[in-house]
Structure formats: structure tokens, C-alpha cells
């Protein structure tokens, strides 16, 4: 074996080692959560990297809690509503901003982008007032409202960029066929924009699903909470006990739907995110 072959092997080994490090870095926390969730309470504080026995009692405890199931229901409701509203408004806004010529179009786009630059904490107090005035405090609608505010800028930007790439003549062909703007959007543009919509929709879903600060602030009772807050507020038998096993089981339960969604839309996300990079 000559030195060139050795170098090639070393390079290859280094490459895979690097991938290994990255994998561990990315996956280990989640892996440890899964392991912890499958341990009985008695073994909780023994540091094990491998699973010796499988114990589902943590899951049983989480899933038999009525308030946790209720929280999942709330989360689903909020996330689905946010995605639906964000896509609807995003698509129509993208049509206006991408296709209709009007004065101040770019300023509107920049303002939309500017909105997303504020940290959540900065708008918390103001938003609280809005929520109170609308009389939706302590209800999922308060969360739908606030998440939509933070989801829309991204949605509008991605969809506008995507919309601008669709050929002008396609819209004109639809106009010649007698289509109104609404028909053009729903029956000509929308089918062509699935990748972008899958991407933005999924990211909106994840953002709404994981959000904590607003969810903590705008809800009060167990029955109105979403999953991240519910998990944070899981408490043990005494004030001094943190039931890590149950918390981890709950975390795994709420992460799995996201992983499944990402898997399903994986290809579309990639094509949606790279759209515009090169002319296809």
C-alpha cells in the first residue's frame, strides 16, 4: 500500500469521523431524552448511555394526565390555525406584493420584514393589551393571534420571492382565460407553489408548536395551555422533586409529530428552500 492510498483512507476516515461528531452533537440530547424517558424513576440518576431495560411507566403517567392530552389538543389547534391563517394571508399578500404594481410596494415588504426583527419580549406588553382588549386572554386564540404576527413576515417573504419567479405570461394566460385574481391564485399559482407552501407552513407549524413565552403569558389555566408550557409545569409529588422521567416522556411525545412531519415534507422543503437559488 503506497502513501497515496494511505492518505486517501485517512481522508475518508476523517470525513466519517467528522460526520460522527456532528451526528452526536445534533442527536445526543434527544437520544438522552428518549433514554431517560424509558427508565423507571428509581434508575433516573444513574448515568447510562445505553438502555438496559424498557419501562413505559413514564409514558403511562403522562398520557393518563387529562391536562396533558388537553394541552396537546390545544397545541394542535393553535398550530394548525396559525399555519392555515399564515398561508392564506401569506399567499394573498405575496400575490399583491409580487404581482401587483403599486406605489410603496418595497416599503411594505421592508416593514413586514422589520416586524419580525423585534424580540418577542419587546412586544409582549403591547400584545398583552391587544389580547385583553380583544377579550381572548387565556384562550388558544390569543396564541393564534400572537404566533401569526411572528410567522407572517417569513411566510410573506418566502412566498413573495417564489411568486415573483412564476412567469408573468402564466398569469396573463389566466387573465385571457377569464380568471379573476382569486381564481388565478388558487387554481394556477397555488398548485405551482406547493414546495414553498410546504416549507413555510411546516416552519410556521414548528414555531407555533414549540413557542413558550407567549404561551406562558397569555394562558392561565391548565385547560388552555399548550404543550411546551404544560411540560415546563409538570411537577412531582413534592415541591423539591422534578420528575425528569415524565418530563422527558412528554417531550418525546410532542417531538415525534414534528419529526414525522419533517420526514413527510422533506423533499418539498429542500426544493422550497433552494427555489430561487438557481433558475430551474
Amino acid at each position: 500500500m503506497n502513501s497515496r492510498q494511505l492518505i486517501a483512507i485517512a481522508k475518508r476516515a476523517g470525513f466519517w469521523a467528522l460526520i460522527g461528531v456532528l451526528m452526536v452533537y445534533a442527536i445526543f440530547p434527544f437520544y438522552y431524552a428518549v433514554i431517560t424517558s424509558l427508565k423507571p424513576a428509581s434508575q433516573l440518576f444513574r448515568v447510562d448511555y445505553w438502555l438496559n431495560s424498557v419501562d413505559f411507566s413514564n409514558y403511562e403517567r403522562v398520557l393518563t394526565q387529562g391536562s396533558f392530552l388537553q394541552a396537546i389538543g390545544n397545541s394542535v389547534l393553535v398550530a394548525v390555525c396559525v399555519v392555515f391563517i399564515a398561508l392564506l394571508l401569506g399567499l394573498t399578500a405575496a400575490y399583491a406584493l409580487g404581482r401587483v404594481r403599486f406605489r410603496g410596494r418595497n416599503s411594505v415588504l421592508l416593514i413586514v420584514l422589520g416586524v419580525s426583527m423585534f424580540p418577542q419580549v419587546a412586544v409582549l406588553a403591547g400584545l398583552f393589551e391587544v389580547v385583553r382588549v380583544l377579550n381572548i386572554y387565556n384562550s388558544p386564540w390569543a396564541l393564534v393571534l400572537s404566533y401569526t404576527i411572528f410567522t407572517l413576515p417569513f411566510t410573506v417573504w418566502v412566498l413573495t420571492t417564489f411568486m415573483r419567479q412564476l412567469p408573468m405570461e402564466l398569469e396573463e394566460a389566466a387573465i385571457m382565460d377569464g380568471a379573476t385574481p382569486w381564481v388565478t391564485i388558487t387554481r394556477v399559482f397555488m398548485p405551482l407553489m406547493w414546495p414553498a407552501m410546504a416549507t413555510t407552513g411546516l416552519l410556521a407549524f414548528i414555531a407555533a408548536w414549540n413557542e413558550f413565552l407567549f404561551a406562558l403569558t397569555f394562558t392561565l389555566t391548565d385547560s388552555q395551555r399548550t404543550v411546551p408550557v404544560a411540560i415546563a409545569l409538570i411537577s412531582g409529588g413534592s415541591p423539591h422533586e422534578l420528575p425528569w422521567g415524565t418530563i422527558m416522556a412528554a417531550s418525546v411525545v410532542v417531538t415525534v409529530p414534528l419529526v414525522v412531519l419533517v420526514m413527510i415534507f422533506q423533499r418539498r422543503i429542500v426544493s422550497g428552500l433552494t427555489a430561487g437559488a438557481v433558475k430551474g
Binding site: P167, E169, L170, A173, A174, I175, M176, L192
Partner: peptide, 20 residues
């Protein structure tokens, strides 16, 4: 009048067929 009420049909340079 909007195009649909003028009774005109148009063939575009890029064809602009609906791809889906």
C-alpha cells in the same frame, strides 16, 4: 372591457401553459 369580455384569445411567446 376586461379581456374575457372582449372575445379575444391569445397565444403567448413562451406558450405559458399551466404546468400542473
Amino acid at each position: 372591457l376586461p379581456p374575457r369580455e372582449r372575445g379575444v384569445g391569445m397565444v403567448f411567446q413562451s406558450y405559458a401553459l399551466y404546468p400542473h
